[in-house]
Design a protein around this nucleic acid. Structure first.
Lengths: 136, 136
DNA sequence: ATAAAACCTATAAAAATTATAGGGTAATTA
DNA sequence: TAATTACCCTATAATTTTTATAGGTTTTAT
């Protein structure tokens, strides 16, 4: 399941995309519009900023903006930043690979093959850009 | 990510499938062979039994057996029993539907459409029977 | 100057996951 | 029939992860 945090992040990005022309949007504004706890949202925004998904302007009249063309921002990117791997077991994760430890032989592990297959089917769907979301 | 518990359950079922001809297998045996904490395994086996995945024989020489043709047992079934929904958000789950609460309009929610699509792509892969796992 | 807002670190609270404890009950075998 | 084996069940503890809050610092526009 997606974490609440990841949902918040998605909503935040969708909101910023929507209000792109209005200049920087304050975290407080997003918090109220999307009913996200303000301080929690700040943490999320900081993570998104550190991954160059959003940028920010400080001081009065400051706020957040998308850091790049929304067509370049995908759901998979956001999920990875907030929740980590897309894959359901770590030993088939591309970006967050870890040995399961438990299975003795990774090559012949039958569970592994299934989840590798699953991951590669999931990926193209999640690589959907946030602008294309509304066109589904 | 799959929970450790779900991995344990998968391993257990695979183990039982392998040892099918040897009659009932004691939880202790599975626990030692697969390095699953014994008491934790008992809990898992009880859940699997309540869902008619395994059956049990009590007393000395007792143990667990698959309750049905392994061709009829799928990875998706096991995941649902142990971890709940396959879907990544509850409002697109078939067996565990719940309103997200957060989005005002489920019909037009753009996130929802993506995850509905994702779920329907995941399902056929996870509906793989445990006997077919080794044939991948 | 003042107010608004991002920035940052730490901590707390809640929930979920993982694991253990301790006894009860049924069946087998000696 | 007594002892042993192993499933059955409920409760609780320990750990980890998730969610949320607290309290400040720094920056900037007015």
């Amino acid at each position: 399941m997606l974490s609440k945090k990841a949902k918040y992040a998605l909503k935040t990005i969708l909101y910023l995309q929507d209000k792109q022309l209005e200049g920087p949007i304050a975290a407080r504004t997003i918090s109220e519009a999307e009913k996200i706890p303000y301080k929690f949202l700040e943490n999320i925004l900081r993570e998104l900023k550190s991954h160059q998904i959003v940028k920010s302007l400080r001081g009065a009249e400051g706020g957040y903006l998308l850091a790049k063309d929304p067509a370049q921002i995908t759901v998979a990117q956001l999920m990875r930043i907030i929740d980590g791997p897309i894959a359901l077991i770590p030993c088939v994760s591309e970006k967050f690979y870890e040995s399961c430890g438990e299975c003795s032989d990774e090559e012949t592990c039958s569970i592994r093959k299934l989840f590798a297959q699953l991951r590669s089917q999931m990926l193209p769907i999640l690589d959907c850009s946030i602008v294309d979301l509304s066109k589904l």
